[in-house]
Structure formats: C-alpha cells, structure tokens
C-alpha cells in the first residue's frame, strides 16, 4: 500500500476540481469587473430611460438605452419557443406513439443531425435562402420573423430529444392501464403520457429558452440589427447578443463596459433558467432522464 502516493493523487484531483469549478467564478468575476465602470458612470436607470442607443466612450457623450434590444431578445426567444414547442413535443409524441419503428428511428436521426448543424451555418442558410424569400413577400427580409424561424429550427432538437427521452422513461403500466380503460391513442397521449412526462418536457422547454436567448450568430445574420422596438414581424430588430458581437470590435470606455453589462444580464437570465430546471429535476427526479 502506498498511501502517500494516494494522498498526493487526491490533492492533484482536488486541485483540478477547484480549477474547473473556479472557471465559473472567474467568468463572473471578470464580467462584473469589466461592467463596473458602466455602473459607476451610468448607473442602472439610464440603461432603460435614455433616449436611444448611441453609445460613446464617455458616459456623458452618449445615450445608452438597452431596452429595445432586451425587448428584441425576448421577442425573438418567445417567438422561437412558441413555434418550436409544438413541433418538438409533437416530434417526441410522434416517435414514441405514432410512427412505425423505422420511421421513428430515421426521424430521430434527422433531429440529431439538425442539432449538429452549427449556428453559423443556420445563419448563413437563413441569410441566403430564407431572407430573400421573406423579402419578396414583405421587404426588407432581414427581420424579427427571419430570426424567429431560424432560431426555432435551432432549438427544436433540444425540445424534441429531451421530451422523447422523458416519455421513453414512463412505465409501461401507464400504457397498459389506459389501454384497459379503452382510451384511444390520442386520449392516452393527451390524458396520460403528456401529463406524466410534463416535468421532462418542461425541462426541455426551459433549456431551449436558455439556448435561444444566448444564441448570437444565427440571429445576428438574419435579424437586420436595427435598434428599435418592432411594430410588426417583418421589421428588423437587434438582440442583446448580436449587439455585443457587432460592437465589441470598436467599443471603448463606458461603451465597452456597457456591453459587459449586457453580457451580465444575459448570464443572469440563463443561470436563473438553469436553477429553475434544477428545482424541477429535484422535485420530479424519478421522472426525468
């Protein structure tokens, strides 16, 4: 027995765990540190009450209203989740209870592959194929609608795969009992399976929401990037994430710091969603894969 060697190993592993866990702390620390000048020179209120978003290096020279971009992010996310939720949950129900085995396997594989397409390729496809189509229908094409459609495709696999996995975990007795009661297939799905799988489906929806609100490139490439609160789905918008990607290249001083504030806001939203998922998981731990 070599207990000194064991102790040495344990300390190396423990040290690694400290570093890995510490990365989170480091990320948040540097985000906060880089945001501080903005809070000092601008405060919080100006991000919502300034006349517009025309940032400058010094707080006094520019205007810093983030509100239209926060609205942009929320609209794009809400739209994408509204479209992807029925399609994603539908895909899971279809694979579990409706499709013949081979069709279900193929469809599952297609959704897995869809999940593997990188966001920049989604954005490129949206820019080349989708935006011109929307432009013909209702110019200018680069719009809230284009962003919503592309984003819904991107988050659909998350919803579908998590819902599918949580339905696969339901005990067979549920199906047998529903069968014994003489329920039709749809009544079984709607009355028994969906409610039983609800925590898992909800987890998928929340994770997809987090993914949507944090997505940058695909949205940036198709949304038009004009800072405004849109009055129709055909108008361009700009999201918080796109704003960071577009302006980091030349931002300095308080402008740069306010981009970090944006990053901080996004992180808080997504982390809050992660904690909600964890709450759900803990309460319904037996029902979630």
């Amino acid at each position: 027995m070599d207990s000194s060697g064991d102790r040495w190993l344990l300390w190396v592993l423990r040290g690694s765990a400290v570093i890995a866990g510490g990365v989170t702390l480091l990320v948040i620390l540097f985000l906060v540190a880089a945001s501080v000048p903005a809070f000092q020179h601008l405060g919080v209120v100006r991000f919502f009450t300034d006349a517009s978003w025309h940032p400058a290096e010094y707080a006094a020279e520019g205007t810093f209203n983030l509100w239209p971009m926060l609205v942009g992010s929320l609209l794009v996310t809400a739209g994408a989740v509204l479209i992807a939720a029925p399609l994603g949950v539908g895909a899971a129900v279809f694979c579990q209870y409706y499709a013949p085995g081979a069709v279900a396997a193929t469809y599952r594989r297609a959704i897995e592959l869809l999940a593997g397409i990188p966001s920049v390729v989604f954005g490129f496809w949206g820019l080349i194929v989708l935006v011109p189509m929307i432009n013909q229908w209702h110019p200018p094409g680069q719009s809230l609608l284009a962003a919503v459609l592309i984003l819904s495709l991107m988050i659909l696999p998350t919803i579908a795969m998590i819902s599918d996995a949580s339905m696969a975990q339901l005990p067979d007795e549920y199906r047998f009992s529903a069968e014994a009661l003489g329920l039709t297939r749809w009544a079984t799905v709607r009355g028994v399976m969906l409610p039983a799988a609800a925590p898992g489906v909800l987890t998928g929806l929340i994770l997809a929401t987090g993914r949507a609100i944090g997505e940058t490139l695909a949205v940036l490439m198709v949304c038009g990037n004009i800072v405004q609160i849109p009055t129709s789905a055909f108008e361009p918008v700009r999201t918080l994430t796109a704003n960071i990607a577009l302006e980091m290249a030349y931002a300095a001083g308080d402008h740069r710091a306010s981009l970090f504030v944006t990053g901080l806001i996004l992180t808080f939203i997504v982390v809050a969603l992660v904690f909600i998922v964890e709450k759900i998981n803990r309460r319904f731990s037996s029902l979630i894969p």
């Binding site: 866990g21 989170t24 480091l26 990320v27 944090g214 994430t241 996004l266 964890e278």
Partner: peptide, 25 residues
C-alpha cells in the same frame, strides 16, 4: 456539490459571454 453546481452554471453561460470573458482574461 459546489463544483457540480458551478459547472452547471458554466454550462448555461451563452457562448458570446465566453467570448467577452476570453477577450478580457
């Protein structure tokens, strides 16, 4: 538990925010 919890948080951080962090750190 603490390490796992902070890794869960890290998994949720949007990629553009990693970009911000990397550009500073």
């Amino acid at each position: 538990r603490l390490v796992r919890r902070s890794l869960d948080v890290l998994a949720g951080v949007p990629s553009i925010v990693f970009g911000l962090f990397g550009s500073v750190f």
